[in-house]
Design a protein around this nucleic acid. Structure first.
Lengths: 132, 132
DNA sequence: TCTTGCTCCTGTAGGGCCTACAGGTAGCAT
DNA sequence: ATGCTACCTGTAGGCCCTACAGGAGCAAGA
């Protein structure tokens, strides 16, 4: 089996070395084997697991939620339906965020468009930020 | 001039009391007057300022950036063009976030749709999260 | 007048998720 | 032997809150 050190794991997953060690400290990743010199040794299963965590983070799961998910997976104590529902929930959360951000985007662009871009210290953007 | 205590300020702006006190500690908000009993007393200008901060936070500005902005505003050391450019930058950042979230949303929904929702501990969602 | 109950006070610690640094070792190439 | 890079541990910091604990102000009712 192909093994690697932490730097390679970091490269392959896009997760910073410090973050990997942090995940280990927080028991989100299992403690890896060490080589003769005391260095962490990882293999393909670690890559898979870290990818899982990284993806989930990207999807907005908290580390706690990820740990829960991983436990479900590890112990096989989950049904496909459970995971389906959680995923859907997550998707709804994401689309909610998108909505919010779109409103922001629109407001920002609108503010920018109202701005004369002059060189005087008087700006409608600032004014509108003070409102409401 | 109408004055209020911290709870009312919190209600009017949607910013938690603790957060208001935190902003004061961090010199983001000016230290307010106190009444006889030692309680903070605010007025309309505080509402405006806190709204500004709150909105900016919502638009993704860090507290440090907000302090910078407020200094610019206070001292009049800004041009309309400067603010315009910052706002546009912010808008670009927001639309970047939206793009990312849309990808997420699509992936999540796709994963959910591939799921049989059965009651067995075997799920294509989990499988796909382990990939990449 | 006394009590109840709410809002407020200060100070400090914790939480989530990293990130950075200091001071040292492993391991490989020259 | 000498560099150099990648790694190690431990700890502190950063950002932005959030949550106590232990106490005081204050208005309204019994």
């Amino acid at each position: 089996m192909k093994t690697m050190q932490i730097g390679t794991l970091s490269d392959q997953t896009g997760v910073h070395i410090e973050t990997i060690r942090y995940y280990e400290r927080e028991s989100i990743l299992p403690k890896p084997m060490r080589n003769g010199g005391g260095r962490r040794v990882y293999d393909g299963s670690d890559v898979r697991m870290l990818n899982f965590i990284h993806k989930c983070r990207g999807f907005g799961y908290s580390l706690k939620e990820i740990v829960n998910l991983l436990e479900l997976v590890d112990t096989g104590r989950f049904t496909c339906k459970q995971i389906h529902d959680r995923t859907l929930e997550q998707a709804i959360g994401v689309s909610e965020k998108i909505k919010q951000l779109k409103i922001m985007e629109r407001e920002l662009l609108q503010m920018a468009s109202q701005c004369g871009q002059g060189n005087k210290p008087k700006c409608p953007i600032i004014d509108s930020l003070f409102l409401e």
